[in-house]
Design a protein around this nucleic acid. Structure first.
Length: 1148
RNA sequence: AGGCGCGUAGCUCAGUUGGUUAGAGCGCACGACUGAUAAUCGUGAGGUCGGCAGUUCAAAUCUGCCCGUGCCUACCA
């Protein structure tokens, strides 16, 4: 005979293992997909992790979040395809390999071939895939790991190329430059990653100059300053960038002053403009505010006089003379040397006017470009535009100065060796003799520029300044911000569309979509695609030497064809794609090619005009790889064209990743889909927070506070972990991970659920309940059953609402509350007798059916989040019954709400009973009145007939729970309780406004009689602040607050009074119950079975005997005694009401 | 430095469009039940809602500033 399995105790970790084995053996994941194979798809994208690192607890969080929605939607009847993916390219992989091999970037192509290097990367990146698969398995994350997309595979790379070529065709790809950290000594650009290495930022002392830029007088200047000769002051910590100055930037809202004073080095009169708040700093100890007419050269203090103030906006547009006229911008020189506005200007340091050299500062480049000011680029010998500093970190020859040098010199002293410095010193001693007769030490470029400006009356102030500056982690020399060639996607051209599309995306939380992501889009820059690395997808762009002809390859087929042309033109000997068949989509065929750099760099193509074309040497930013996954995972458009285009695989209904991906994957997905497909890539997105340790610190291996997901799951099982991660805090809040929280989940939720099941199984097996009877109609079931089923269906609605809103915390917390509070604590606890007392008849069957239904429904509700336990619960519940279910809960449909089952008044009623019970127990506790002692009556006031009926309907439950004989519902007219009236603030607020306080006070002063009068009249009126205030009864709430002479509790507008007067009968019944309690204890300590019958002997006082005699039948019934005799005996000594008595029990 | 979050009881978290006694669980204390018993249940004590100002009759809730904390973006004259 089939039975419900019973367990000694809850072993979540064991269940986890057993269920996992069952899933594997039955290929359950595949079964769930097969079951929905013709269903409407619900599209999910898996963000590719890098298998280069080990998974941590936060990955369990992220993956639980994804899994819970995919499982939910599957149960809801959708087909949820889930393809795993691996992100395999990128800098971390390369740096890891370099470290392992003990090489640097410079060695690649020299001591190691690019091919060998790439092979090493390919191996390294998949190193931890086994552990990742393990984690995925263990935690029950269902995703197809057998056919993942891998970004280094030829098919994937080909799709990426195709996407890029689409952008290229739309004219959205261009070559430009950006200001990037560059290490001249290492000859390489540095990534921000490298700049964030510890120790990179070092404090340095730099020579700084406040330079005087001479204004060119014109109509605009005269309107502002008249005919005066005016100089703008601008500060720089990098004087070597001054020859490259093409603009001055002011803050539009900042106030500037025109000040007359004298140059401290030349003592010549000068009128300067600088930000008013900075005048104090600018005019240091040497200056004093005062009359400039009285000044004589050499005086101790230099006077200065403020003439007028203007705003930054007034200054915009003014022109000035180039400070160090060695070279002019090659493009539009007439647009240079102007004042432009910039939001980044502050009045913290300097002059409030920022020297702007677009070739050497990222901010500078941006404001200059926005204002149409050209960068200082000149044509080199080949006609290419280059900045005034070359890649070695030396000034170009344009800067050759007959006295000061500069040309062909390193712009920072740190770049010179000691020998070089000595050589330079010799030269300088000769050249500078007229200025500095005995030069002792090498003067850096910065120092000589300062010197030159000083002499030329162009330096207002020169001083040393200490600040932190980034250094190259390899050479330990200062980094240069330098314009480097890069390929860009003109994302700014599609900015408006991206913003519009973003507004259609449902962001969780919304603030990330409008805030972090929205702002990012508003301030969008063009996407710099270039990476000067080796292990990644090569840019598929081939160019001629002159750069006048380009070809962007969109497929392997096209490349093969172009190579054939190049062979025909004699540019190549053999085709490295030899026997690749462009029409054959098999993996075997694609295994014949490799699109990585070591092969692609050997490919030379022929241009339409017959010239040789080489590949642009950069690789594509790996973020482009991952943003391409919606298409590349299906090898679109070479395969699965319909699938992607007809809504079968794109766009996603749902994605979820950490909030740190906002400008990463979330952006790249959005950008590519917007630009190539004019579509969103995802309709709903959750950006989840981080997992911190219990003290709110970031988890890291270094701090040793990282939690190992494997050992955690071994101990607690995956269910408890998943449940904890998603119910403890909203997914977008950071989670403080605490093992005690896990224990709590295990004990509180799973423990209670398990015990509830165990209770069910125990009695269902005894009674042979197999759910063979027809369902008892709802209205024929006892009220308690109707109630719990109503709560159950309300619960289904809550879970569904939460899930549809992508708020799992809101969905699953109610499950926990239902299980522990409603089902276990109230339904089962109050209904226990129904399961073991009485015959196997309608009431009992109803109880079993109801409890079974609750548990079975729970198993399906919780299956998305606790897939292991839910599956065991579901299958266990089906093992014991005659009807057959699915073989797994994951093949079932999600429960649906039956509106007829929901009975809100009933729910309200039971909740009222629960609250009253709690209040009475509270009084008992306070007054030290044991629940075992019956009391005569409890009084509850009812303000109207509806309340009265409600109270009477819960009478039996209430009385049984609190052990009281009678419930008396008393009416206001009885005059028993004190009535008070409270203002309804919400309604009254708008009406009485500032008189609210007076109303409150007035009401507090009203006695019962006054309230009665108020109720009869319908309003009250009184004076406040000289005005008559009127309050209508509907804006007030009459409550009962007290019952004189009784023990009273008040809470949430409810009042309960307990009559604690004891009669002899009550006292005796209390004694009888004490006796039952002692006998039951004895039964238990004697190890009797619950069904064993006994004889009892009691030796005690006459008064005791007299007292309990009327209750002998009751006692016998309770303790299963056939006889009770009052005899002396040598049994156990127990105490009742201070009296010591002996009792003995004999098993029959 | 800027952008975006977060800050409520010892701990982890709720707290609707502002409405006057700020809730829950854990932990703690005390107790009950003894036919769910290595289970179950009750009661209680814990809070200047990070701070300061403001708006309002009324602020945990709205505004500003500050402090702490985290993420992202920069590294800037």
């Amino acid at each position: 005979m089939s039975t419900f399995p019973e367990y000694a105790n809850l072993d979540l970790a064991g269940i986890h293992k057993a269920v996992l084995a069952k899933w594997k053996q039955s290929h359950l994941f595949e079964q769930t997909l097969a079951a929905r194979k013709d269903a409407e798809p619900w599209i999910f994208f898996e963000g590719p992790p890098s298998a280069n690192g080990l998974p941590g607890i936060h990955h369990v969080m992220g993956r639980s979040l994804k899994d819970v929605f995919c499982r939910y939607k599957t149960q809801k009847g959708y087909l949820v395809d889930r393809k795993a993916g691996w992100d395999t390219h990128g800098l971390p992989v390369e740096l890891g390999v370099e470290k392992e091999l003990g090489i640097t970037k410079e060695d690649i192509g020299k001591s190691i071939t690019v091919e060998e290097y790439n092979d090493a990367c390919r191996t390294a990146v998949m190193r931890y895939t086994g552990i990742w698969k393990d984690l995925t398995d263990q935690m029950g994350y269902w995703v197809d790991m057998d056919k993942p997309y891998v970004t280094y595979e030829p098919k994937y790379m080909e799709s990426v190329w195709w996407l890029l070529s689409q952008l290229y065709k739309k004219g959205l790809i261009y070559k430009g430059y950006t200001i990037q950290p560059y290490s001249p000594k290492a000859g390489t650009g540095l990534s921000s990653h490298e700049l964030n290495q510890p120790g990179c930022y070092q404090d340095v002392k730099d020579n700084t100059v406040v330079a005087q830029f001479k204004m060119i007088n014109n109509g605009q200047s005269e309107a502002l300053f008249g005919a005066a000769t005016v100089h703008f002051l601008a500060w720089t910590t990098t004087p070597w960038t001054l020859p490259s100055n093409t603009a001055l930037t002011v803050g539009p809202k900042i106030e500037y002053s025109l000040v007359h004073t004298f140059n401290q080095y030349t003592h010549e009169p000068v009128s300067i403009v600088a930000a008013t708040p900075l005048l104090g700093k600018l005019f240091g100890k040497k200056f004093v505010e005062g009359d400039t007419a009285a000044y004589e050269a050499g005086a101790k203090k230099i006077p200065y006089q403020i003439e007028k103030t203007v705003t930054g906006t007034d200054l915009v547009g003014l022109k000035y003379e180039q400070l160090m006229p060695y070279a002019l911008p090659d493009e539009r020189p007439e647009d240079a040397f102007r004042i432009i506005p910039g939001d980044f200007v502050t009045t913290e340091d300097g002059t409030g006017i920022v020297h702007t050299a677009p070739t050497f500062g990222a901010d500078d480049a941006k404001v200059a470009a926005d204002a149409g000011v050209p960068p200082l680029l000149v044509k080199d010998e080949q006609g290419n535009l280059v900045p005034l500093v070359d890649l070695r970190g030396k000034f170009r020859s344009e800067l050759a100065d007959p006295v000061f040098g500069f040309g062909e010199e390193y712009i920072k002293a740190e770049y010179l060796t000691d020998e070089e410095k000595a050589e330079e010193l010799a030269k300088q001693q000769a050249l500078l003799k007229p200025i500095i007769p005995e030069l002792k030490a090498y003067l850096s470029v910065d120092e000589r520029i300062a010197l030159k400006l000083k002499i030329e009356n162009k330096a207002f102030k020169i001083e040393k300044y200490e600040h932190s500056y980034p250094h190259c982690w390899r050479t330990d020399k200062p980094v240069l911000y330098y314009p480097l060639d890069s390929w860009f996607i003109k994302s700014t051209a599609k900015k408006d569309q991206m913003i519009a599309l973003n507004k259609t995306i449902n962001w969780k939380p919304a603030s990330t979509g409008t805030g972090r992501f929205g702002n990012w889009l508003e301030n969008l820059n063009d996407w710099n695609l270039s990476r000067s690395r080796f292990w990644g997808i090569p840019l598929p762009i081939w160019s001629t030497e002159e750069g006048d002809e380009h070809l962007c390859i969109e497929s392997a087929a096209q490349l093969k064809e172009e190579i054939e042309k190049a062979i025909a033109a004699g540019l190549m000997d053999t085709n490295p794609m030899g026997d690749f068949d462009p029409t054959d989509m098999s993996d075997d065929n694609y295994a014949k090619i490799d699109l990585h750099r070591h092969i692609m760099d050997t490919v030379v193509l022929v241009s339409p005009s017959g010239k040789a074309m080489k590949r642009e040497s950069d690789l594509i930013d790996v973020w482009f790889d991952s943003g391409s996954m919606p298409y590349a995972q299906w090898h679109y458009p070479f395969e699965n064209k319909e699938k992607v285009e007809d809504g079968g695989a794109f766009p996603a209904n749902f994605i979820a990743e950490g909030v740190d991906q906002t400008r990463g994957w979330f952006f790249t997905l959005h950008a590519i889909s917007s630009m190539v497909f004019d579509s969103v890539a995802y309709k709903n997105v959750i950006s989840n927070g981080l997992v911190l340790d219990k003290n709110g610190m970031k988890m890291s291996k270094r701090l040793g506070n990282a939690v190992d997901p494997f050992t955690t799951m071994d101990e607690y099982g995956a269910d408890a972990l998943r449940w904890y991660l998603l119910t403890n805090a909203a997914p977008w809040d950071n989670l403080r991970f605490d093992m005690e929280g896990l224990q709590e989940v295990r004990r509180k939720f799973f423990g209670t659920l398990h015990n509830t099941y165990a209770f069910f199984a125990l009695y269902a097996n005894v009674d042979g309940f197999r759910y063979e009877e027809a369902d008892i109609p709802l209205h024929e079931r006892p009220e308690m059953d109707q109630w719990i089923l109503s709560e159950l269906h309300s619960l289904i609605a809550k879970v569904e609402d939460g899930m549809e809103a992508f708020e799992p915390t809101r969905a699953f917390r109610p499950i926990q509350e239902f299980t522990t509070e409603k089902l276990s604590n109230w339904y089962v606890r109050l209904g226990r007798r129904r399961f073991w007392k009485g015959a196997y008849e309608a009431d009992k069957i109803s109880a079993y059916q109801t409890l079974w239904t609750c548990l079975e429904t729970l198993s399906r509700l919780m299956a998305p989040l606790a897939p292991f336990y839910a599956d065991q619960l579901y299958t266990d519940l089906h093992k014991g019954i005659a009807k057959t279910g699915e073989t797994s809960v994951h093949l079932t449909d999600f429960p649906t709400v039956n509106a007829h089952a929901v009975n809100a008044p009933l729910e309200k009623k039971i909740n009222l009973a629960r609250q009253l019970t709690s209040m009475v127990l509270s009084i008992r506790k306070k007054e030290n009145l044991k629940v075992r002692q019956p009391l005569a009556r409890v009084l509850v006031p009812a303000l109207n007939e509806g309340d009265r009926e409600l109270l009477e309907s819960i009478q039996s439950i209430l009385l049984a729970e609190v052990n009281v004989k009678a419930l008396e519902v008393i009416t206001p007219d009885a005059g028993v309780f004190v009535k008070k009236v409270k203002p309804n603030f919400k309604a009254l607020g708008p009406k009485v406004g500032r008189h609210m306080k007076a109303v409150k006070t007035y009401f507090q002063a009203m006695d019962s009689a006054a309230v009665d009068a108020f109720e009869n009249r319908g309003f009250v009126e009184f004076e406040d602040q000289g005005q008559t205030v009127r309050v209508d009864l509907i804006d007030a709430e009459v409550v009962t607050e007290d019952i004189p002479g009784m023990l009273v509790a008040t809470s949430d507008g409810l009042t309960v009074a307990l009559d604690a007067t004891l009669t002899d009968t009550l006292r005796n019944e209390g004694l009888a119950r004490e006796m039952v309690n002692r006998l039951q204890n004895l039964r238990k300590s004697s190890g009797l079975d619950v069904v064993d019958r006994i004889d009892v002997q009691i030796e005690g006082s006459d008064s005791l005997e007299l007292g309990i005699t009327p209750f002998i039948a009751y006692i016998k019934d309770e303790v299963l005694a056939d006889t009770i005799s009052f005899d002396s005996n040598t049994g156990e000594t127990v105490e009742i009401e201070g009296e010591k008595i002996n009792v003995s029990i004999f098993k029959k």
